[in-house]
Simulated scan of single mutants.
Amino acid sequence: MKKFFTVVLFASGLMMVAAHAQAQTKIGYISSQEVIGIMPETRKADTLLTDFRNALLASAQEKQAAFYAAYEKFAKDSTTMSEAVKSVKKQELNKLSTELGGEEERIQNALQQKRDELIMPINKKAFEAIQAVAKEAGYTYVFEKEALLVAPTGEDILPLVAKKLNIKLPNAAGANAPAPAKKP
Rank of each mutant, 00 (worst) to 15 (best):
K183V: 14
S87G: 13
A129G: 08
S97M: 02
L56N: 03
S32P: 14
L169N: 01
A21F: 14
L158D: 01
A65D: 15
E155S: 13
L100Q: 00
F4K: 12
A134V: 02
G102P: 01
T25Q: 14
A181V: 10
A75P: 00
V150H: 11
F143A: 02
V88F: 05
I157Y: 04
V85E: 15
L169Q: 03
A151F: 01
S32G: 13
K163I: 03
Q33L: 07
K125Q: 05
T6I: 15
E104I: 10
V150F: 12
F52D: 00
N123V: 15
A65F: 12
Q61I: 11
I122Y: 09
G101F: 02
S78Q: 13
P152V: 00
I167A: 04
E83I: 07
V8R: 06
Q113G: 10
Y71F: 07
A66E: 04
K183Q: 13
E128I: 04
K114H: 09
T98F: 09
S31F: 03
I130S: 08
K125S: 01
N54W: 10
A137W: 07
I38D: 04
T42M: 12
F74G: 08
V142D: 00
N94H: 00
T140G: 10
Y139H: 06
E92K: 11
E136K: 15
M81P: 11
A60F: 05
A179L: 09
L48R: 10
E155G: 11
P121E: 04
L118K: 14
S97E: 03
L111W: 10
M15A: 15
N54Y: 10
T47F: 14
K86Y: 01
E34D: 05
E144S: 05
M39W: 03
Q91V: 08
D51C: 03
K3T: 15
A134W: 00
G101V: 07
F52Q: 02
V133T: 03
G37H: 03
G101T: 09
K135V: 10
P170L: 08
Q33E: 13
K89V: 07
L14G: 05
E62S: 13
K89M: 07
A75E: 04
L169I: 04
P40N: 08
I27H: 02
Q22M: 13
Q61D: 15
P184T: 04
M120I: 12
Y29I: 10
A172M: 03
K163Y: 01
E144P: 02
E128K: 06
A126R: 04
A162P: 10
Q61R: 13
T80F: 05
E99T: 14
I130R: 09
V161M: 03
Q131Y: 06
T79E: 07
G13Y: 08
D116S: 13
S87E: 14
G174K: 06
L158P: 01
A179N: 00
M16V: 14
V88R: 12
Q24I: 11
A70P: 01
Y71E: 13
F67S: 05
A75W: 01
A173C: 01
A21N: 13
L165D: 12
